[in-house]
Design a binder for these strands. Structure first.
Lengths: 170, 170
DNA sequence: GGATGAATACTCGGATATTTATTGTCCGAGTCATCCTGG
DNA sequence: CCAGGATGACTCGGACAATAAATATCCGAGTATTCATCC
């Protein structure tokens, strides 16, 4: 099992968008070029982020994507779920109710949830909580601290040459 | 993304094996029949559990599978990893090093790990830790507490009619 | 010169192929139990 | 009646297809810009 690669793409893209001036947008083409990704496939994931109301799209020439909320208000869990889906990792199919003995069992024998299901859900909750407590702002701050300042400046320069200022708020 | 269904199958099967008398075995056929599963496909997963040294196989007639260790010494993480693989959920492909700016960047610009990779790994560790702190014995105990005693007895009866006593320890 | 209108280029959005991973199946190798034969 | 050996049936083990999901791509809908034309 593995997470979709789109999750990685999405996380990097929203991190870039978080670093832009307020209201500014970047088109798919620029985001794809910067990361060396397929433009058309990245578009699919940016759509998913748009549907999840994490980013918003500005159509037409000079259009693009920008964050819909502040980085502090966007958790990593939201981004992961937007791209990879909201369904649980472990899906209990109730195989305890499928054997030959299950047919004879009283109805109330299965009123309590499956213990295995509970145990797996517990671990999954820990994962989601860990993702929920980390926001996009944390990622950006870490980037600012860790990455070579010269490299940061190069990125800002490159981005500023390609970003589009927003005409107005939606 | 979803975990393999085989994880659910494996968890239920080892739970059943944990309830057997010491040394007794059950063949794939019985385990599959009890849960209403495909015998051949379940066999594949039991193989994986064998390779992970969680259960062991006894070949030949009157053969089958049995736990290789005590339930207290088998964590859920081991079972999950045995079937679903030990690779991480999130795989950082270092796309930060793939853009046009990355080529010009100094080598030491990427000495520190990718912040997104770190954040995702943190969540994943929480998931693994939660699985690691729960053992097979916990599952069995919960089952003993929750499930209708009459149903438990029916299961024990059904199993005792099909289990094979172990000739000797390996 | 300014305003209006149509044409245009660029953007996102969803529907459509291709590749990979998961799911499911089959047949062969090995082993213990059973049965038959001989002492 | 007991021991030995060959036979046979049952088990696991890994190699081989079918299905589902993820990956990658293409073309159409919509919009702000731009340019030409008219007033």
């Amino acid at each position: 099992m593995k997470l979709s690669e789109g999750v990685e793409w999405g996380l990097h893209c929203v991190s870039v968008l978080a670093g832009l001036p307020s209201g500014a947008t970047l088109p798919t083409k620029t985001l794809a070029e910067y990361h060396g990704l397929s433009e058309t496939y990245l578009s699919k994931h940016l759509q998913a982020l748009t549907n999840a109301r994490i980013i918003e799209s500005v159509p037409g020439p000079r259009g693009g994507y920008r964050l819909l909320r502040l980085p502090e208000e966007i958790t990593l869990l939201e981004i992961v779920e937007a791209i990879d889906g909201r369904e649980p990792l472990f899906r209990c199919t109730e195989i305890r109710q499928r054997g030959p003995l299950a047919c004879e069992a009283s109805a109330q024998a299965y009123r309590l949830p499956c213990g295995i299901h509970v145990a797996m859900a517990r671990a999954e909750k820990a994962w989601r909580e860990a993702l929920k407590t980390q926001t996009l702002a944390d990622i950006v701050n870490q980037y600012t601290q860790d990455v070579d300042p010269q490299q940061q400046q190069r990125r800002n320069q490159w981005m500023s040459e390609r970003l589009r200022s927003a005409p107005k708020k939606s």
